[in-house]
Amino acid sequence: MHELSICQALLNQVTCISGAAGAGRVERIVIEVGPLAGVEPGLLASAFLVMRAGGCAAEAALIIESAAIKVACDACGSVSAALANRLLCALCGGYRTRVICGEELRLLRVELRPADAAHAVN
């Protein structure tokens, strides 16, 4: 459900960026949603299809990237892959780990079509 709130935050950011650039329309939006972000990528994509209507991103594609979870172990210093509900060190089994990859929830890139180009293309 909170994917709606997050989609709105995304569209607000994209609208600001597009407006500042004086762009005609937004073509692609690339975001990163890690497995531990607490956000369901499929629901976010569905919300985007509904909420993009009527704004600068009305025709934009949403690309959702995701990187696998990695934890760093404070005990042995190694970095290893982990599962969302099993975040222990794969090497020494230690529990004093920090997630160094997998929590991302961020806007990476916006691809804009300049207003005049959009006009020429159409």
Binding site: I6, Q13, A23, R106, E111, A117, A120, V121
Partner: peptide, 20 residues
Amino acid sequence: LTPESPARIVEVVQDLLCEN
């Protein structure tokens, strides 16, 4: 300007919940 003309790419890397 053709349909293939490159779009302007803005690199952002900004937390989606930065306003919150």
